[in-house]
């Protein structure tokens, strides 16, 4: 089985049934997962920050890093596998976006990431069918391409699926 490991700010897709698309230790970052039932393609982006205007160079270099540039980049990537380039028919799942305990507004990057991603998805007419967002813990996420199953694990907890 092949593993496609995505680091912070990476995005990628696969339609190889043997593959697993995985990202480690989402803190306040959010993993955006697109599943295309038609082409059996799985795509994922590991989004770190909501807004690319703070650093345009970084956004050009690593569009997956910011919510506003990650979603168009991931859709374009998946279009190569025959997926609709406006995301029509894609199933969306979101996870991550945790916050430290007793946080204040400034430090709620997890919440801002999730909210910005949802707003951008809405602009495409897309919405998440399942999400596992927030809380005060780190998540590792793996998606099997064949089953389209999203498995989440976190140290000290049994793994679960969305």
């Amino acid at each position: 089985m092949g593993q496609i490991i995505l680091g912070v700010g990476d995005y990628g897709a696969s339609n190889n049934p043997g593959d697993e698309v995985k990202t480690f230790a989402l803190g306040s970052c959010v993993s955006v997962i697109f599943l295309d039932p038609k082409t059996r393609t799985v795509g994922m982006a590991h989004v770190a920050l909501p807004d690319s205007t703070i650093n345009k160079n970084k956004a050009a270099d690593k569009p997956g890093y910011f919510a506003d540039t990650a979603i168009p980049a991931l859709l374009a990537d998946m279009a190569q596998f025959g997926c609709d380039k406006r995301g029509k028919g894609l199933i969306v799942k979101l996870c991550g976006g945790a916050n430290v305990m007793d946080t204040n507004d400034t430090f709620q990057i997890g919440k801002r990431n999730a909210l910005t991603i949802k707003k951008i998805l809405w602009s495409y007419g897309m919405g998440a069918v399942a999400e596992d967002l927030g809380g005060n813990f780190s998540r590792t996420v793996a998606v099997s391409v064949s089953a389209g199953q999203v498995t989440i694990s976190s140290p000290g907890k049994p793994s679960w699926q969305i």
Partner: peptide, 8 residues
Amino acid sequence: SDTMRYKL
């Protein structure tokens, strides 16, 4: 396991 399980 302790990641983010602290107060700001």
